[in-house]
Structures are given as structure tokens and as C-alpha cells.
């Protein structure tokens, strides 16, 4: 498995009902493309995050397919409308089958 993988999320703790909030996510990951060769000329196998999703109370906010050309430590910034209090669930899917999860609660102020 890829080492040093660590998901990070920055989200507001509260929002007013119907407000559109900005969410920032970053996962430290090498995103090895599968196109590179090591010093002996052998292909370094592909190892990337291939899918990222964000849900709010079970509703999908974004569902992203990542391709090998995406750089190390993929960063996403996107918006979501918050109608009621609940929890954002962020999920990253690794090529090697690992799934990384992070959750952030949001309140209505």
C-alpha cells in the first residue's frame, strides 16, 4: 500500500440554512502514474486514488473519477448547499483497495 497517506478536510462548523459552503480536501498520496520507470528500467506499478466522493446526510455532493495524470497530493475545493444540520462524509478509494474516510459535522446557526 502507498505509505504516508493522510486525508485532510477543512469545512465550516456551522452554516445558516440554505447557505452554500466551501469545502476543501486534500489527501497526501504519491499518485504513481504507472508510466514511470525506476533506475533499473522496470515500470513502477500504478498506484493512485481512483475515486473521491463527498456525501452530506447520505446525499451525494460530488463523485469524482481520478485518472493517472493527476498530481501528487490531490486537492479538491468545491461547494455544497446545507439545508439542515448533519454530517459530511468524505471517501477516497485507493487502487490497492484501501478506503480512507473522514467525517465532519455541520450545524445550522
Amino acid at each position: 500500500m502507498a505509505s504516508g497517506v493522510k486525508p485532510r478536510v477543512k469545512s465550516p462548523k456551522s452554516a445558516s440554512a440554505g447557505e452554500v459552503v466551501t469545502l476543501k480536501t486534500l489527501i497526501s498520496h504519491p499518485m504513481e502514474s504507472g508510466q514511470r520507470k525506476d533506475s533499473d528500467g522496470n515500470t513502477i506499478p500504478r498506484s493512485i486514488i481512483n475515486r473521491f466522493t463527498c456525501e452530506l446526510n447520505g446525499n451525494m455532493v460530488v463523485d469524482v473519477t481520478l485518472e493517472p495524470a493527476i498530481s501528487t497530493n490531490p486537492y479538491f475545493e468545491f461547494e455544497a448547499r446545507v439545508d439542515e444540520a448533519g454530517e459530511f462524509k468524505f471517501t477516497w478509494y485507493d487502487d490497492d483497495g484501501d478506503v480512507y474516510e473522514e467525517a465532519k459535522a455541520i450545524e445550522i446557526a
Partner: peptide, 12 residues
């Protein structure tokens, strides 16, 4: 700090 990619190395 969230937008500063240098902070990833600080975390490490």
C-alpha cells in the same frame, strides 16, 4: 495553512 502545500511536509 490548508492551501500551503509546504504544511504537508510539516505534518510529516
Amino acid at each position: 495553512d490548508f492551501d500551503n502545500p509546504g504544511m504537508i511536509f510539516v505534518d510529516d
